[in-house]
């Protein structure tokens, strides 16, 4: 009988061995600011002097490249694939390979694409890696949970009762597996709450322009959270 083994899984731990901290940014619902927070958090960590990576794991709807204004760059091939360097951050996204074409993937394709990117991306030494997760809790999240087991989860929620409900219900999956979770209150009107990012309409106008992003209240709030997060 012929047996088949997928070799990619066995190299993934090696790819992350020099990454000190990994933060998954999730929140399960779409439109709650996961990508803006992931991108800004990466910039903030880098501003604080930490060597930082950003991985956009939203395969079919990646947007971190738009937020950071990434244009005309492509990962270099060198014993694997090297993330693009932008504003001091090592950045990897499926966007580089889709050529902005729309496409749809079924579950097995998502699992394979996640595994492939984790297998071939060479992060080298990082103080922290931020992983921007797609909405929901399905193949990409399950595959990451299976293949990488040393991350903390930043759960983004908004004041919407829908967002609060889904975070409180779904966070149990991570907690039960022993992953540390940190709740971040985005679009917050109550500044007395911990880990709050205030509602700031100017952030939309700053998208694509990192200099403008760094002048927003949104970024200042993310920056003030970052130093606590790296210690978490």
């Amino acid at each position: 009988m012929t047996n088949l083994i997928d070799p990619r899984e066995n190299i993934i731990a090696e790819r992350f061995k020099d990454v000190k901290k990994i933060f998954l940014v999730s929140g399960f619902k779409g439109g709650i600011g996961k990508s803006l927070i992931s991108s800004s958090l990466s910039l903030a960590m880098n501003d604080l002097g930490f060597k930082t990576g950003l991985l956009d794991m939203d395969i079919t709807s990646s947007t971190d490249h738009i937020i950071l204004g990434v244009k005309d760059k492509f990962p270099e091939e060198k014993n694997g694939i090297l993330p693009v360097e932008i504003y001091g951050i090592k950045f990897m996204s499926f966007y580089f390979f889709t050529m902005s074409k729309p496409f749809a993937l079924r579950g097995n394709d998502i699992k394979d694409a996640v595994k492939e990117l984790l297998c071939v991306t060479v992060w080298d030494k990082l103080d922290c890696l931020i992983i921007d997760m797609p909405p929901g809790f399905s193949d990409a999240a399950l595959e990451l949970m299976r293949l990488i087991n040393n991350f903390k989860v930043i759960l983004v929620r908004t004041p919407s009762p829908l967002s609060i409900d889904i975070v409180s219900r779904m966070s149990g999956i991570y907690k039960d597996k022993g992953f540390k979770t940190i709740i971040v209150n985005n679009m917050s009107k109550d500044t007395t709450m911990g880990n709050s990012i205030r509602y700031d309409t100017s952030i939309d106008d700053a998208i694509g322009n990192v200099t403008a992003i760094k002048k927003t209240q949104f970024y200042r709030d993310v920056l003030s959270l970052s130093s606590d997060m790296i210690k978490a």
Binding site: N3, P7, R8, N10, I11, E14, N79, G80, V122
Partner: peptide
């Protein structure tokens, strides 16, 4: 080269899976 990363994954697998010894 990207091929190196994949070759490395094959060797790592063969080294770690007892059934391939």
């Amino acid at each position: 080269m990207h091929e190196w990363a994949l070759a490395e994954s094959v060797i790592k697998t063969v080294e770690t899976k007892p059934e391939l010894k």
